[in-house]
Amino acid sequence: MGRFISAAVLRDMAKLNKTVVLEEDSVLTPSAKDLAKELGITICKGREEIVGHNVVGQSAGQKQTPAVNSAEAGNQSEDLKKAVQKILGEVLKPACENPKATHVKGETVVVQPFLEAPPGQKVGLVDVIDSRVGNLASGFMTFDHSQLPWFLNYDEVDYVIEGEFVLEVAGQVFRAKAGDVVYIPKGSQVVFSSPTFCKVFYCTYPANWADFCD
């Protein structure tokens, strides 16, 4: 699977130049594409422009209009490649440099309102293990007759503790009950919900999942 370029990563890359050259295996998230259009960022893979106003890499015999001056692009490509590698290195490094065994007592856990939920939606969330102690995060979510559209730029496993948990992803609808386990792969656009009330235990990788949210 190619490396995902999130909106946060793209924003950092665009600080160097409004024309961003990606490695061939890179994959833009939907939010990154929207950001590129919003900020007028031109994104290329080699000679092919994948986001921008110009058309590059057309079929033989058709006139090509390069996104930038070819000499300028040639001079910048090596610097941009190094910048991309540096940023990806930061993104892909372990979330926790010194993981340690940790015991969290259930009686101390308090689920807080999730501030990123849409107005009027009763969604709660709390991390009990985070990047301060491990590379894998875990915690609890609650949904009270509510739903939460979300983009996951990380892997997640959910275990239903109580109630009915509904997950819509990639054209599929999963209706999970207490005792069921659901896996959601990185790069998924989902809708979490419950028609009643449910409580879910989740695990995410990497632990600093919030750093990859836009």
Rank of each mutant, 00 (worst) to 15 (best):
N17H: 14
P206I: 10
S59F: 12
V191E: 01
S131M: 10
K37T: 05
R175A: 00
Q64L: 05
V21S: 06
S146Y: 06
Q85W: 05
D155L: 02
L16Q: 15
L22P: 04
L10G: 09
K18N: 11
D34Y: 08
V126F: 12
C44R: 13
S59E: 11
F197I: 00
E78S: 07
F165M: 13
T19Y: 15
A83P: 00
P66N: 15
M13V: 00
D25K: 08
V133H: 00
N98R: 13
L115T: 15
N208E: 04
D158I: 13
G57I: 02
C96P: 02
L80K: 15
E23V: 03
A101V: 11
H145T: 11
G2M: 10
D130L: 08
L92V: 00
V20F: 08
V21C: 13
V160K: 07
G106R: 04
V157L: 14
E116V: 15
L80N: 13
F197M: 06
V27I: 14
Y159T: 10
T29P: 14
T102N: 10
L16C: 12
L39E: 12
G57R: 14
G139P: 08
K63T: 05
L22D: 02
S77E: 10
E156R: 08
L152R: 01
V133Y: 10
S131A: 13
C44A: 04
V9Q: 13
C198I: 06
S31V: 02
Y202E: 03
T142N: 03
D155V: 02
N208K: 03
E116P: 12
K86P: 00
P66Q: 07
N17G: 05
I129A: 08
I161T: 01
V200Y: 10
V51K: 11
S59V: 12
E23T: 08
G171M: 12
A117F: 00
V157C: 02
F197H: 14
C213Y: 11
R47A: 10
A137S: 15
V21H: 14
T29D: 07
R11Q: 09
K18C: 02
P30T: 04
A176Q: 02
F114Q: 11
K100D: 00
G89E: 00
D158V: 14
V169D: 09
R132Y: 11
P30A: 04
W209P: 01
N69K: 02
G187I: 06
K37P: 03
D12E: 11
P185Y: 09
S146A: 15
G163C: 04
E164I: 06
P94N: 00
S26D: 15
Y183Q: 05
G61K: 02
A7M: 03
N69I: 13
Q147C: 07
K82W: 05
V27C: 07
P30F: 03
K177M: 03
T204H: 05
L167I: 15
S26Y: 08
